[in-house]
């Protein structure tokens, strides 16, 4: 899957959880990704994140190790 799409979708998820109260936003982004994205999509995201680090929302970056 094209990287811009996966990264856009992940950033979009982060944009919601960023607005949520509490300190566990990264955990919640990770939980959402695990609940709704299959392992292949998560792996692809991790993979693409390596070469497109700059495009990632900070929250996605923090969530990645948790998925």
């Amino acid at each position: 899957m094209s990287h811009d799409k996966l990264i856009r979708m992940a950033n979009q998820i982060a944009s919601f959880f960023k607005t949520q109260p509490g300190r566990d936003q990264a955990e919640r982004v990770a939980a959402h990704l695990k609940d709704f994205w299959g392992p292949e999509m998560r792996a692809a995201l991790k993979d693409q994140a390596k070469s497109h680090e700059a495009e990632l929302d900070d929250l996605v970056r923090r969530a990645l190790p948790l998925i």
Partner: peptide, 18 residues
């Protein structure tokens, strides 16, 4: 135990050959 693909994901995965 892992979620599968949603329609848009299926189509994306089809375009990229999986």
């Amino acid at each position: 135990p892992e979620p599968g693909l949603r329609i848009p994901n299926m189509l994306d995965a089809a375009v990229s050959g999986q």
